[in-house]
Design a protein around this nucleic acid. Structure first.
Lengths: 191, 191, 191, 191
DNA sequence: GATGAATGAGCGTTCATTCAT
DNA sequence: CATGAATGAACGCTCATTCAT
């Protein structure tokens, strides 16, 4: 058995609890308990709860990114890239429901608003693959000439919604339905 | 001057506070203060905070419904009805940002999940105009033959997303952009 | 029995605990317990611990002031007034040891520094009888022509020290010794 | 370069932090950090925080004593010895503000009370120069025949008070003012 | 001796809810 | 009905101390 690194355990426990119970339902003491450490130990690794929450998000991003971009090629036409990335995203969400639920909690909170503001207003930190894709689509005139943020909405809006519905058990997404959904999104953004 | 009914005042104050500060930032004592009543008085009208929150949502729905369905005619073709209702929804959101913010808080919380579960699984309480529209669209073969819930996602996903971005100031929605957005949604759902 | 007003009880309990155990040794929960109220109740009367501590000081001042100034007459010569006030102060301290101990804790803490700064630098709020006395003494040339603050030190330094020693049981102050001490202080400040 | 002995570094760091931030503002971890050692290391040298604090005081005393008694001659008349020692003390305080601030923190805390009790009640450990001076003054009938402890109060009370006011910036002590102050104290104790 | 990660009791504070008036 | 003082469990966080390395 590999050593159960405390930091990893805290991250795992926090993600799990927050995903399932929300920020409310995940007091530091409970996170600590689920991680098998003392309450104070969390503060050895994370300055405070806010920082833990933000770090959790970055950790999640770092894990999801390579999975979602696997096999993604810039040379491929915009439409194919769009379908590729949309499908990969949706699949990632439904195979990693805890990650997805955490993501939702995060994005639907003040943290998420700040994050989105930073992403949109300059701060194009790191390589943002989806932004590039949408910008390509617009400049190649294969996508509608509407603000980037609306293209985001037309893409992530439905994907997040169906992922959530799948995870809540309201619908059963299979390969076929995933393809139909992503293609429908493409119909929305394509010129 | 009509008597400022206490129940109404509580609802108004709670909506305002929760919309602007989230559930966290709206303690009962503060709601009471903003409503001009004593803390205990809230409990004369609402058994507890959960019930107040749910009631608030129903109240909001009841106020929004007639505005959104105004001028809506069943005789009109599906596409026109879709554009009509989508546009009306979006306009309602951006002219009633408090209502929208509350809606988001509500839907993105455990309350919202319960609510959605009730709506989808049976309980087709009252007359659900949007459900009818989508069912019409599918049966008339003008919309894609995919689960209703996916059509919901393709519609509400983007509309809620752009409404939020508008209210947060990330984008400025005008008549033209609203039309483009709703038409893009139509592209997504139409066959 | 007069109703044991909760606010009074909290003040009494806090004064007692802080006087005897210091700020450290007087957690809010313990103050509450000693006052016979719940922990949260304190916050109905005092916004936070800092404010409780400051309020306690003001309360003490308000109670001590009339006792100390009783029979004090502005017409009397400076020397007599000095002996009067010094004696009254010392007597107040040793008959109200809790007040004295609290005062010491307060003055020897950041609160006290702020308080003293406010008193010295302008902010001659309210009628400051001792300041007036010392200023009279200097202007009538019966006291040494040294900065006011040094006259304060020559007066309060010894008085606080002997009061503390008496309360700690290191010495037994009686009428005679009190007079000798205050007269010694007079020797220090007089020209 | 002499090896920066760990014990010395801990003492230095602790004195500095406690002097500047009080006992509150000087957690062991911070003392360790400032001393350039690990948190646990402090416990190799000092059993616990209380013992560190007490040891710190003794260390301070040991450093201050020779400075203050430099040039002090038993053959000199009591008055001159009094002025000498008072002046030396005051100068030491204002040239070593950290030592002074620590001293104040210490004396105004439960530690200080215990210390004073030990000093006064028997335990005339080591050679106490000031006690001797005051006893000489009384027996030679040049000082007032009042309890030793009152003479202490008349001396240290004002000296500590003006030193504090100087360090807090409420007054600017120079050679002249120091002399005036010490002479005023002499007026208080002299017969 | 020296380390520093880990501990967990304890702190100040909040807030949904109750109930005597 | 309406009040608002009172409650107390629960929260995020601190820090003196321990102990395996």
């Amino acid at each position: 058995m590999t050593k159960p690194d405390k930091r990893e355990e805290i991250i795992r426990a926090a993600l799990e609890l927050i995903a399932e119970q929300g920020f409310h339902g995940a007091p530091m003491a409970m996170i600590a308990k689920n991680a098998g450490v003392a309450a104070g130990t969390i503060y050895c690794y994370f300055e405070n709860k806010d920082i833990l929450i933000t770090e959790l998000f970055r950790n999640l991003e770092a894990r999801a990114y390579p999975v979602i971009t696997e096999g993604y090629l810039l040379e491929v036409p915009v439409r194919d890239r769009y379908l590729h990335i949309g499908t990969a995203l949706l699949k990632y969400f439904i195979t990693n429901p805890l990650d997805f639920k955490y993501l939702e909690q995060f994005l639907n909170s003040p943290y998420g608003t700040v994050f989105r503001r930073d992403r949109l207003m300059g701060k194009k930190e790191e390589h943002d693959i989806i932004r590039e894709l949408l910008e390509d689509g617009v400049s190649q005139q294969v996508m509608k000439d509407i603000p980037l943020i609306v293209l985001y909405a037309l893409t992530f809006g439905p994907l997040l919604a169906v992922a959530r519905d799948h995870i809540l058990g309201f619908i059963q997404l299979d390969e076929h339905l995933i393809n139909l959904t992503v293609e429908a999104c493409w119909n929305a953004v394509k010129r």
